[in-house]
């Protein structure tokens, strides 16, 4: 993977995923390794995403590298009308790796084509956010001890949620069973269901939490965003159907873990946080190790 940009989850093979996950485990066991000494990583956030940026910057710091960059487009030359191409070509002169987040879809792929240094996509609009997917895989593997043959429930906005779509694609290598829980108009798009059909992967759709959740190995929660609803009354109704509460976890499996890409709004009740099955904060911690692994591997340091 040396010098290979990470733009889309579709760029990496199953073997690539597994290599990153092994490396992430190594960093979890020994997270301060100064292998990035003398290297500069640019974090270009054309739209703010504090959580993702801090996670990357923490990863770089633990590896002994330096970070340059900006935290939103308003504080950069972009506001003066500079094209993405010019920004990237300039910053590529100052850095060994570019991490970028941009609201325009396909911007990271384009940046990787004009940049002389590799690019890591930290989110391009509604398109891709591959480092999130890899940290999700790492969290699943770590909590379940394996990736194969798991029963994965995905709850919330399955139509627009890029995280959910990428997770589905990545997990499809490992023979999962999927259960989708969403309001009717936020159902998993046909193209993804078709993809699962072609791969012979079983999936079931539900419109609310079901007793089947007791069979889950992973419950992956996402936000149902108010902006998706044209009718506010409809939102108020739906909002409360997709809230995970602690008492719903009573009969769930011992190994079951709850994941969420964060930030959450109200879809996981705070009474769940103390439950050992709540895993979303550790999941965020895993993001640092996974990003260390991605950076080290792209720069050919591991």
């Amino acid at each position: 993977m040396k010098n290979k940009s990470l733009i889309s989850i579709n760029d990496y093979s199953k073997e690539d995923y597994l290599k990153i996950l092994d490396l992430a485990e190594e960093f979890e066991n020994n997270s301060v390794q100064k292998i990035l000494e003398g290297k500069v990583v640019a974090t270009l956030f054309f739209e703010p995403s504090t959580r993702t940026r801090l996670s990357f910057e923490s990863a770089v710091n633990k590896l002994g590298g330096k970070v340059i960059g900006f935290t939103d487009a308003a504080s950069s030359s972009v506001q003066k009308g500079e094209t993405l191409k010019d920004t990237i070509m300039t910053v590529a002169n100052y850095s060994d790796l570019i991490v970028m987040r941009h609201p325009i879809e396909g911007s990271a792929r384009y940046a990787s084509e004009v940049s002389k240094v590799p690019v890591v996509n930290a989110g391009d609009g509604a398109n891709q956010h591959p480092t999130q997917t890899l940290l999700d895989l790492y969290s699943i593997k770590k909590t379940q001890g394996k990736l194969e043959n798991l029963n994965i429930f995905i709850v919330g906005d399955l139509k627009y949620g890029r995280t959910v779509h990428s997770l589905l694609i990545a997990m499809s290598h490992f023979n999962p069973t999927f259960n989708f829980i969403s309001p009717d108009f936020l159902k998993m798009p046909d193209e993804y269901k078709l993809f699962l059909d072609e791969k012979g992967i079983k999936y079931y759709e539900h419109s609310d939490f079901t007793k089947y959740i007791d069979q889950a190995d992973i419950v992956y929660m996402t936000r149902v965003q108010k902006e998706r609803f044209s009718d506010p009354i409809e939102y108020e109704k739906v909002k409360n159907v997709y809230i995970l509460k602690n008492k719903m976890l009573e009969n769930t499996k011992e190994n079951m873990r709850i994941l969420h890409p964060l930030p959450r709004v109200n879809e996981i009740n705070e009474d769940v946080d103390a439950n050992p099955k709540a895993y979303y904060f550790q999941q965020a911690e895993n993001g640092v190790y996974t990003r260390q692994a991605i950076i080290a591997s792209i720069l050919g340091l591991k």
Binding site: S8, N10, L84, I104, E105, G106, Y110, D124
Partner: peptide
């Protein structure tokens, strides 16, 4: 991005019968 900056479009034909083109950039 191809509709925002001066970037030439690139597509893969994913379905010839139904004529479905996948964008190389935004997918």
């Amino acid at each position: 991005i191809t509709n925002v900056e001066n970037v030439k479009t690139k597509f893969t034909v994913v379905d010839k019968k139904e004529l479905k083109l996948k964008c190389h950039y935004c997918e």
